[in-house]
Design a binder for these strands. Structure first.
Lengths: 165, 165
DNA sequence: TCAAGATTGATGCAGGTGCATTTAGTGCGG
DNA sequence: CCGCACTAAATGCACCTGCATCAATCTTGA
């Protein structure tokens, strides 16, 4: 033993870990940057607006939104605060369960979501699409998915793929 | 046209983007969680200590550290503050350039770095290594690397892979 | 040589995040 | 019906981050 001894996290796994962290943070930063430069709010707002717009009647319980977005409860609560402050969503009372509420997307919210998709999709194309053939994108998805459902995740069904749009 | 029309960011690229974001955030959270549960400071501290320990005489200019870690200047400055507060590093004056300084890792810092690697490597193995064959890890690296050097990056040479250790 | 500009690092402030706790309401078991 | 455990959501607090700016020093070039 010695030179050839197998290490616990293999060199390959470690390299993958590093790249996963670095590449993601760069690509995310680049995309967020593009959105910001176009004068749009952060990506989380888009995600929330999209979820709301896709919901049955444009409204969701905060607790649902929370699950969809994989955010902690308090983060969701505050995100909703901001959306409401900006008139992109409205809180509506929930008659069935008076603890709860519904959050309903407004027309302004739907409009912003659509406008953001212009910039967002362009950014995805610029920072991801243009770097990878569709076939490679599929391979990447496959590899990433294997890492995904690690630590007891029933979470994040990762809805059908086209749904971001 | 219509049903088969090519979209700008292809469905595949969009799916890859989503997974990259989601998987990374989950894996990172899982690893950070493990470190925290083992009573260790955040990963950024490890990275900084590693860089320092690998530097010629255990010391670096903040501005060097900054480049290695891809952090904004103020973040580096504050990270160093914390390391110094905890006795893991020390600021030493730079005689050549009085604007600057050197940050030198202490024995306690080197020790912590080594201890953290125990937990860190175990976490990488648990959340990455165990999910992927070495061959797949290599494929993943290759795909990620193509996304890496996007927006004018001369940055992050992504040093030889084994160097995290 | 000296003023203009660039570079190093720190910091005040506004806002975001995590954690723990609080408030309010539900629903079950006795 | 009441108490108790549970869930939904909000919030106080400490800390972290991003941005802009500052002070100090270095470098350049006329």
């Amino acid at each position: 033993m010695g030179a050839m001894m197998k290490r616990k996290p293999s060199t390959e796994a470690t390299a993958a870990w590093i790249r996963l962290m670095r590449v993601q943070s760069r690509v995310l930063a680049a995309v967020e940057q593009d959105l910001k430069k176009a004068g749009f709010p952060p990506l989380a707002w888009y995600d929330a607006l999209l979820e709301l717009s896709r919901a049955p009647s444009g409204e969701l319980r905060p607790v649902e939104l929370e699950k969809q977005m994989l955010l902690p409860q308090y983060a969701t609560s505050r995100l909703i605060d901001r959306l409401v402050d900006e008139g992109l969503a409205a809180r509506r009372e929930c008659k069935v369960d008076k603890r709860g509420q519904f959050v309903e997307i407004t027309d302004a919210g739907r409009e912003l979501q659509k406008k953001m998709w212009q910039a967002y999709s362009a950014a995805i194309e610029k920072h991801v699409g243009s770097k990878l053939s569709d076939a490679d994108a599929v391979k990447l998805c496959g590899l990433l998915d294997r890492l995904g459902c690690s630590c007891g995740e029933a979470l994040a069904p990762v809805r059908d793929v086209a749904s971001v749009r």
